[in-house]
Simulated scan of single mutants.
Amino acid sequence: MQPVVIQWAGGEHAFRLGLAELETIQQKTDCGPEYLLHRINAAQWHIGDLMEVLRNGLIGAGMPHVDALKIVRKAFDNHPAILFKVPAQAVLAAFLFGPPDDQPGEDSPAGDQTQTGSNADAGSSAPITG
């Protein structure tokens, strides 16, 4: 997955959560990514939740660990904690649901078509429900 660029209290940076970063976040917050996003959305977050998501998002996008820690700590030291809620939500949502500009139902680029289902499904235009 491609990094997302987010303007936040620490500046404008690329963020990406790979599996290694997600494992670190899970260990530090004691919950999975969807539960953590719910916890943040429900205003039940801990300061460490936001810090870990942002720090690991920077690392996943290629920033060295030490630099990511410095930027996050400096930002949290100089700004109200609530300013980090929306950026943390955006980083987690990009991992869970894809980047915000990747709209459902958009045609995939030419040559990037994958075939799923059987030939019996090929001519069907009925929506799939389940």
Rank of each mutant, 00 (worst) to 15 (best):
Q26A: 11
K70G: 07
A122H: 01
G130A: 12
R73S: 12
S124K: 04
G10D: 13
L92V: 09
P64R: 08
M51T: 08
G98T: 06
H79E: 15
V86H: 06
K85M: 12
L96C: 09
A122M: 04
A93G: 08
L83I: 11
K28T: 11
A14Q: 10
A120Q: 04
I71Y: 00
A93L: 14
V72K: 00
F76A: 06
P33R: 03
Q7F: 07
G130L: 13
L69T: 15
H13S: 10
G111M: 01
H46T: 08
R16K: 15
A68I: 08
M51S: 10
L83M: 13
G57L: 09
V66P: 01
A122V: 08
A93M: 13
N41D: 15
P87F: 06
A61G: 03
P64H: 10
F95I: 05
L19M: 15
K74Q: 15
Q7P: 02
I82T: 12
L50K: 02
I47Y: 07
L92R: 03
P64K: 12
Q89D: 10
I47W: 07
V72F: 01
A90C: 13
T129F: 14
D112Q: 04
G10K: 05
V86G: 01
I40Q: 00
F76K: 00
D102M: 12
I71K: 01
E21V: 04
D112K: 00
P33E: 12
G98Y: 02
A122D: 06
L22F: 09
I25M: 06
H79D: 08
E34S: 14
L17F: 05
Q44E: 15
A75L: 02
E12L: 06
Q89Y: 04
G10S: 10
A88R: 01
A20W: 04
A43Y: 04
D30N: 07
P64V: 14
K74F: 08
M63I: 13
Q113H: 01
P3R: 03
G117D: 01
V86T: 10
P100L: 14
L83T: 10
M1F: 07
M51Y: 07
R73G: 05
Y35K: 07
M63A: 12
N56D: 15
N78Q: 09
A9Y: 10
H65L: 15
L83N: 13
L36Y: 01
A90N: 13
L69C: 11
Q7M: 09
P64C: 12
L54K: 02
A120K: 01
P33G: 09
V91S: 03
A9F: 13
L54M: 12
G11K: 04
R16P: 04
S125R: 04
A9G: 10
M1H: 06
G111K: 00
E12M: 09
K74N: 14
T29S: 04
V91Q: 02
A90R: 14
D121Q: 05
P109G: 00
T24Y: 06
T116P: 00
L92H: 06
I47S: 10
G117W: 00
A42D: 15
D121C: 05
H79Y: 10
P80I: 09
E52K: 00
H13R: 06
Q89E: 15
P99D: 13
L96I: 14
H38G: 14
L19N: 13
L92C: 08
T116I: 03
E52F: 10
I47C: 05
Q26L: 07
H65S: 15
W45E: 11
P87R: 05
N41K: 11
T24V: 13
L58I: 03
D67H: 10
P109S: 01
A43I: 02
A110F: 00
A126C: 02
V66F: 08
